[in-house]
């Protein structure tokens, strides 16, 4: 059985026994990750479908309710998330070019941005709680009393909530990757793990790119 892990000076266990080469294995990992991302996309698709249907049924309520969200905070969060995506991309780039310290630094920046995102989101949520702009049966927002507004907030909380869960999941993945990076596991020879984590984080960003206009802008 040819085994390259040792020859490349990589840590044990990187190349599994049933793959003929590391290249093959990386390809498998990448494809597997993309398939997983596809499932994530379809997971969110359910909520987007709900959004599309109810927006079609209650166009005015959605516009009205959307105007009462804090667009400044929404935009701020968009910028925060885009930047964090950028820093993850940079981190992979640095790992690829054998600059592990820079890579780690980028991950730290990403994590900080992610925290900032959650912080801003928390502020927004607190505001909604304060105004009773809550989903479903808890809806008692004085400012918007159009039928369908409660549905907007249901979708708002489900979508941002699910997205928030993904942000938290992404943060834990990135923290783990940060630890591995600091251990010096990723280099130009092997950086697939980091790349996978990065892909996940980009997906979180991707979902937000759609949530932002749908919830805040129209």
């Amino acid at each position: 059985m040819s085994h390259e892990a040792d020859a490349l000076g990589l840590p044990r266990g990187i190349l599994a026994h049933h793959f003929s080469s590391l290249e093959r294995q990386n390809e498998a990992m990448r494809l597997g990750m993309w398939l997983f991302l596809a499932t994530e996309i379809l997971l969110f698709a359910g909520l987007f479908t709900g959004y599309a249907v109810y927006r079609f049924q209650f166009p005015l309520a959605f516009q009205e309710a959307s105007r009462h969200l804090n667009i400044t905070l929404g935009t701020l969060n968009t910028v925060v998330l885009i930047t964090s995506s950028f820093s993850v991309a940079l981190s992979i780039f640095y790992a690829r070019t054998d600059r592990p310290r820079a890579a780690a630094l980028c991950l730290v920046v990403t994590l900080l941005f992610a925290l900032a995102f959650l912080g801003v989101k928390a502020v927004e949520y607190a505001e909604h709680f304060h105004e009773h702009a809550l989903p479903g049966k808890y809806y008692a927002y004085e400012a918007v009393k159009v039928p369908g507004a409660a549905m907007f907030y249901t979708l708002y909380f489900l979508m941002t909530g699910l997205h928030g869960v993904h942000v938290v999941a992404g943060m834990s993945v990135l923290s783990w990757l940060l630890w591995r990076t600091l251990q010096g596991r990723y280099s130009s020879r092997y950086y697939t793990g980091l790349e996978m984590g990065g892909l996940y984080w980009h997906l979180v960003d991707l979902v937000w790119i759609f949530l932002y206009p749908l919830l805040y802008l129209i």
Binding site: M1, S2, H3, E4, A5, D6, A7, L8, R12, G13, A16, H17, S21, L22, E23, N26, F93, R96, T97, S188, R189, Y190
Partner: peptide, 22 residues
């Protein structure tokens, strides 16, 4: 895992089909 590894002579470049330089 496998202890019975045989050295491989494949060049490193194989593992990075698309190195990006910038």
């Amino acid at each position: 895992m496998a202890e019975s590894a045989t050295p491989s002579s494949k060049p490193d470049a194989d593992h990075q089909p698309h190195p990006s330089h910038s």
